[in-house]
Computed example of a mutant assay.
Amino acid sequence: MGAALHLAHAEQTPPVQRNRTKGKGGGGSDRYDALIRRVYADKRQTSESRDLILLMAWLAHRDPDRHDTDLGFWERAGNILGRYTINGREKPRLADLIASDRPRYEIEHRDAIWQRRACAAPMIRRDGECGKHATAHADRIDTNGWHWPIWYCNRHAEWGRKHEAAYREARKTAPAPIPNRGGLLPSYFTLKSSDEGWINVYEWACTWTWNRSWKPPEPYGLRADDWPRTDAEEEVETWEPPTLRLVVANGELVGL
């Protein structure tokens, strides 16, 4: 498939033996069933990550061609997802889905504090905030290293400038932000080549999606399961991911 993802071969994880109860119509569950259940219960999933993880689970556990050593794991994924043309360039859909899961921190602009745009300056003659329509904002950094806006109106521009100065000073010693996007692929699947393999996967995808400046989020790692939880997050169930294998030939990753 030309210039595409240089990865190959999923290593099938042996399924858990079914434990059927005679006469009761019951049945056990292999790891594929458990993986699918976890995907649909995982509130961190986006439509992109869910689609890709479900496909990867099927390829690793159910695809009739999964034992074909001439047809690599990522090649099968790429064939199913296909390619499309944009600005005269043919592009693999697989790259879009992987790049959307790149581990990173993004400022949450959809939060109510961004939408409200009300001046937060405290009032002197009455309790509470100003509340007038804000025309600008400063930033603050919380203990997660996340950035949040402090809105202010024209009347309280001086108050806002003090917060802007405080923010510039805080950035000098602020902790690295805890990632809040991506990192689900390594949480559901491991590579025998460890994090280095996943870095290669994400870097490949980013070369197709104009995110070439992406770097692994230090010091938190690539797996969303390993990132420190915030107070608003729910506990994520313990999970042992299936293992995929990278194949290298002549110093190059073999694949699509």
Rank of each mutant, 00 (worst) to 15 (best):
A3L: 08
A4E: 06
H6G: 11
L7H: 03
L7W: 00
A8F: 00
A10N: 07
T13R: 11
P14D: 12
V16A: 15
Q17G: 10
K22L: 13
G25T: 05
G26H: 09
G26S: 14
G27S: 08
G28S: 11
R31C: 03
R31Y: 11
I36W: 00
I36L: 06
R37G: 04
R37Q: 10
V39C: 10
K43Q: 12
R44A: 11
R44F: 06
Q45S: 08
T46Q: 08
T46P: 06
T46V: 03
S47F: 06
D51W: 10
D51S: 15
L54E: 13
W58R: 02
L59R: 03
A60E: 14
P64I: 01
D68I: 00
T69C: 09
L71Y: 09
F73W: 05
F73L: 04
I80S: 06
G82F: 04
I86P: 12
R89Y: 05
E90L: 13
K91N: 09
A95W: 03
D96V: 08
D96K: 06
I98E: 00
A99M: 02
A99C: 09
D101V: 00
D101F: 00
R102T: 10
P103I: 01
R104A: 11
I107C: 10
E108L: 15
E108Q: 15
A112P: 09
A112R: 15
W114K: 03
Q115C: 06
R116Y: 03
R117L: 01
A118G: 07
A118W: 06
A121Y: 05
I124C: 08
I124P: 06
D127W: 13
D127N: 14
K132R: 14
H133Y: 04
H133K: 15
A134K: 07
H137V: 03
D139R: 15
D142V: 08
D142M: 05
W146M: 12
W148Q: 03
I150P: 06
W151G: 05
Y152I: 01
H156W: 09
E158G: 05
G160N: 04
G160C: 09
A165Y: 10
A165R: 13
Y167S: 13
E169A: 09
R171I: 10
K172G: 09
P175N: 07
P177C: 04
I178C: 05
N180R: 13
N180C: 08
R181G: 03
G182N: 05
P186M: 02
S187M: 06
Y188G: 01
Y188I: 00
T190W: 05
T190A: 11
L191P: 01
D195N: 14
E196R: 12
E196S: 12
W198D: 01
W198A: 04
I199N: 01
E203N: 11
E203C: 07
T209P: 08
N211Q: 14
S213K: 13
K215Y: 01
E218K: 14
R223T: 07
D225F: 11
D226Q: 12
W227A: 05
W227P: 04
P228N: 09
R229C: 07
R229I: 03
R229Q: 12
D231N: 13
D231A: 15
D231E: 14
E233R: 12
E234N: 10
E240T: 14
E240N: 13
P241Y: 02
P241N: 08
T243Q: 07
V247M: 06
V247F: 01
A249L: 07
N250E: 13
G251Q: 09
G251N: 08
E252Y: 03
L253V: 02
L253W: 02
L253H: 02
G255R: 00
